[in-house]
Amino acid sequence: MARWQPNATERLAVAALELFAERGYENTTVIDIAQRAGLTKSTFFRHFQDKREVLFGGGTMAGLVADAIAAAPATATPLDAVAHALDALGQQVFTQDRRAFVARRRAVIAATPELREREALKGLGLIASMAGALKRRGASDLTASVAAELGALAWEIAYQRWTAAADGDDFSRLARRAIDEVQAASSAVTG
C-alpha cells in the first residue's frame, strides 16, 4: 500500500458510514473502517480519535459559523449575523453533492444512541460558537444566547428539511426560510 493516500479523511468517513449502515455502529471496528477505505489503522488514528468522531468532522462547522458571523455586515442584527452563518454552511458544508451522504449520516446517527449523544454535544458546541461570535460583535450575553438558540433551532429545521427533500432545494434557502419562521413564531409567542 502506498505511503500517502489522497482524500484519506473523506474515504474514512464514507467507509465508516457504509459500514455503520450495513453492520451497525456497535458491530464496526476501526480496523474494518480502515480496511474498507483501503488504509491502515494508524492512518485512521492520524485523522480521528475514535470511530465515533469519523462522522463529526472535528470543530470545522463551529469554526466556520464563528467566522461567518464575524464576517457579517456591521449593520446586521444578531439573528441576521446567524443567518449569514447559515448561508455559509449552505455554501461550504451542505452542498448538493453532499446531500446523499449527509442524509445517510443523519439516518445512521438517529439509529445509534451513542452517536445521537455525540450529535447533541456537537449542537451545544455550535450554539456556544454562535453565542461567542455574537458577543465578540458586541451583543449582550442574553441577546447572544437567544440569537444562538434561535439560530440553532432554524439550523435544525433547515437540516431536517434539506436531508429529507427530494426536490433539490438548497440549504441556504431553507435556512433563511427557517429563520423567518422562527422569528415569526417568536413574535407570536410574545404577542
Results as ranks from 00 to 15, higher is better:
M1S: 12
M1T: 09
M1K: 05
P6A: 10
N7E: 14
A8K: 11
E10R: 15
A13G: 07
A15V: 07
A15L: 12
L17I: 02
E18A: 08
L19H: 02
A21Q: 09
Y25W: 09
Y25E: 03
N27Y: 10
N27P: 00
N27T: 03
T29E: 00
T29V: 00
I31C: 08
D32N: 12
D32R: 10
I33Y: 02
A34T: 06
R36Y: 03
A37W: 01
A37M: 10
G38P: 08
T40R: 11
K41E: 04
S42Q: 08
S42H: 06
T43R: 12
T43C: 00
F44E: 06
F45H: 04
R46I: 05
R46F: 10
H47K: 12
K51R: 15
K51V: 01
R52H: 02
R52C: 00
R52W: 01
E53K: 02
V54S: 07
L55C: 10
L55I: 02
F56V: 08
F56H: 03
G57D: 10
G58Y: 03
G59M: 08
T60P: 06
M61V: 15
M61Q: 15
I69K: 00
A71Y: 02
A72P: 12
T77K: 09
P78S: 11
P78R: 00
D80T: 12
D80G: 14
A83I: 07
D87N: 07
A88S: 12
G90W: 02
Q91M: 07
Q91V: 06
V93E: 12
D97E: 15
D97G: 06
A100V: 10
A100K: 14
A103R: 11
R106T: 11
A107D: 09
A107T: 07
A107V: 04
V108S: 03
I109P: 09
I109W: 11
I109Y: 11
E114P: 04
E114I: 09
L115E: 12
R118Q: 14
E119K: 15
A120F: 04
L121P: 05
K122G: 10
K122R: 03
L124N: 04
L124A: 13
G125N: 06
G125A: 04
I127F: 04
I127V: 13
A128C: 11
A128Q: 09
G132E: 03
A133Q: 13
L134A: 01
K135T: 10
K135Q: 15
R137S: 09
A139K: 01
S140P: 00
S140K: 07
S140E: 05
S140Q: 02
T143Q: 05
T143W: 05
A147M: 05
A147Y: 09
A148C: 02
L150N: 14
G151F: 00
G151D: 07
G151Y: 01
A152R: 13
A154E: 04
Y159G: 05
Q160T: 09
A166F: 01
D167P: 09
D169H: 11
D169V: 06
F171Y: 03
S172M: 03
R177M: 13
A178F: 08
D180Y: 08
Q183V: 15
Q183M: 14
A185M: 14
A185S: 08
A185K: 11
S186G: 14
S186M: 08
S186L: 12
T190A: 13
G191H: 12
G191R: 15
